[in-house]
């Protein structure tokens, strides 16, 4: 039986991807941020998950604004990264698991989450930056991954509450897969940031830390926030934090915190890292 062994969260901004490509991990601006990933990388290399479900949003690579699925699931055996218009070299293809994906699609749709199924899916920085943050030390990707894209770009968007419920459904879906597999769920994006308008450049450390605390200890609080409220506090792009709620829903009601890290600013954002597992006691 497949099992969710942990939930992770991370930022996914392109600036982090560029910093890794330029090997700036020891640069004074970046050092504290990247150091915050080391304990998680160590844990991952010890427990060796077989597969990661990466919850992210596409920023204009695979999905243009002509067709925008609220939830889309990769159902391929391989996922390709590609140029987003900046001429940056693409990362190596990431192996998928079509059989597992189709099982997830069947289970999720049965549970009334009507996923868009994607047999071809280009994955942008939202997916690749987390892959690289956690596993770039390996010569080849040491696990398979499944992209779960949430529309956080073209409103109307889904909500924190709905993402939380999707996480709960995802747990059922994973646990009903007959093959023994260790799975991690990664919620990506956030935290507070606004890229657009005269209000660009807001960071709200207090709100970020409150979100981190509530996601760990009181996810229901987070689930009750409206998108209007989140955007007002955390910025229009800070709304990405709702994707952390998919990760949280996939874990037990009570969790153990194996790692908790925060840094600000990183480029335009507050950046949080979490490693959570179901509570052991």
């Amino acid at each position: 039986m497949a099992k969710i062994i942990g939930g992770l969260t991370t930022s996914h901004i392109p600036a982090v991807g560029n910093a890794m490509a330029s090997k700036l991990e020891q640069d004074p601006y970046w050092k504290r941020f990247f150091d915050g990933y080391e304990p998680v990388k160590q844990w991952l290399d010890e427990v060796k998950p077989d597969l990661a479900i990466i919850v992210y949003n596409d920023h204009g690579l695979n999905f243009f604004l002509d067709k925008v699925p609220t939830f889309a699931l990769g159902c391929a055996d391989s996922y390709q990264n590609a140029d987003e218009g900046w001429g940056i070299p693409a990362s190596a293809d990431v192996p998928g698991d079509a059989q597992f994906s189709w099982h997830l699609a069947e289970s999720l749709i049965r549970q009334e989450f009507d996923m868009t199924t994607c047999q071809e899916m280009l994955v942008d920085h939202g997916f690749m930056v987390p892959m690289n943050l956690f596993w770039r030390q390996h010569e080849h990707w040491p696990l398979k991954a499944i992209p779960l894209a949430v529309n956080t770009v073209q409103h109307p968007l889904t909500s924190a509450a709905r993402c939380y419920k999707l996480g709960k459904a995802l747990r059922k879906a994973v646990e009903s897969y007959p093959e023994d597999m260790k799975v991690v769920v990664i919620g990506t994006g956030g935290l507070s940031h606004q890229l657009q308008g005269e209000r660009a450049g807001i960071i709200d450390v207090d709100f970020d830390l409150k979100c981190i605390d509530k996601i760990i200890n009181d996810p229901q609080w987070m689930a009750e926030l409206s998108n209007d409220y989140i955007m007002e506090k955390a910025g229009t792009e800070g709304i990405e934090v709702i994707m952390w709620m998919v990760m949280r829903g996939a874990l037990a009601d009570k969790v153990d915190v194996l790692h908790k890290h925060y840094h600000a600013p990183i480029s335009n954002t507050g950046a949080g890292v979490l490693l959570l597992t179901d509570a052991q006691s």
Partner: peptide
């Protein structure tokens, strides 16, 4: 109309803008 229309200096990308 939306509540978010009142956030200053902000252009929420919704159907109207899309």
């Amino acid at each position: 109309r939306h509540e978010y229309d009142d956030i200053p200096g902000t252009y929420v990308f919704d159907g109207k803008r899309a």
